[in-house]
């Protein structure tokens, strides 16, 4: 009951927006812009012929591989940059220059290097999500409170124990924040990347629906599905924030 109360205003806004959309399309007698109902029937069409699952699966697969590789690279790299001052001084400026370059700007190079298959979008996802995660992880190491490092020093533990029981767990909350940002960006980028010369994925679905007969009902269906899946992905990342060993950081 309480939960219903919480989401009621959000649902009301969405309902209002749908109503306004519907009303406007009817009023303007638009032949090309679909009504919400046409979007629903369009979506059902995609579900029934099975193509929707193929597109979702293709997009998720690309994000999974690209983001997974980015995590594998970014977390150790970020820890190293955060811990070793020399590495930070040497490499941080480079990352700060690469980071603001939109992943979209990498598309020509991706095509040049990897062609128009699966590798290009995977590379673009990797590029887009690796930098925020490196930055967050490094910042996480830098913000470990000195009292904890001192305590570790005081107990005279080995470097291995210091890393495993202090540096990594102390940074974990920030790593998870980085992963949330990284996955969000990855999902943005996969759609853009799939608009180029691919034959599957939600980005392809949108572009193809427009090109093949102005099916704007399917364009909007694709957009809404992208939004919903993005929300779900973020929800999964939020579950990580609920782990007992990281909750200390988010409580304050």
């Amino acid at each position: 009951m309480n939960k219903l109360k919480r989401i009621a205003p959000a649902l009301a806004v969405i309902a209002l927006l749908l109503a306004a959309w519907w009303f406007t399309v009817i009023q303007t007698h638009s032949v090309i812009f679909p009504t919400p109902w046409q979007v629903v029937t369009g979506t059902l069409e995609l579900i029934n012929d099975g193509t929707l699952w193929i597109h979702i699966g293709a997009s998720l697969m690309r994000v999974g591989i690209g983001f997974g590789l980015a995590v594998l690279v970014a977390v150790p790299l970020g820890l190293w940059l955060g811990w070793v001052k020399g590495a930070y001084i040497t490499l941080n400026p480079l990352f700060q220059i690469l980071r603001p370059i939109s992943p979209i700007a990498w598309i020509p190079i991706a095509i040049l290097w990897f062609g128009v298959g699966n590798e290009s979008p995977i590379f673009l996802i990797f590029i887009s999500s690796v930098f925020p995660m490196v930055v967050q992880t490094t910042a996480g190491v830098h913000t470990i409170e000195r009292r904890y490092l001192r305590a570790a020093e005081n107990f005279g533990v080995s470097r291995y124990t210091l890393f495993r029981q202090v540096v990594v767990p102390a940074t974990l909350p920030q790593i998870i924040v980085g992963m949330r940002i990284g996955l969000g960006v990855a999902w943005l980028v996969v759609v853009a990347a799939e608009m180029i010369a691919l034959h599957s994925g939600l980005g392809y679905l949108i572009i193809d629906s427009r090109n093949a007969g102005n099916r704007y009902d399917l364009v909007i269906a694709g957009m809404i599905i992208i939004g919903l899946i993005g929300l779900m992905l973020d929800g999964v990342m939020r579950l990580l924030e609920g782990l007992k060993s990281v909750r200390w950081r988010y409580a304050h």
Binding site: Y148, A151, P169, A170
Partner: peptide, 14 residues
Amino acid sequence: GILISQHGSIFPWL
């Protein structure tokens, strides 16, 4: 010699 200070240093992640 172990130091115990005002703000404490019990690791919150353990």
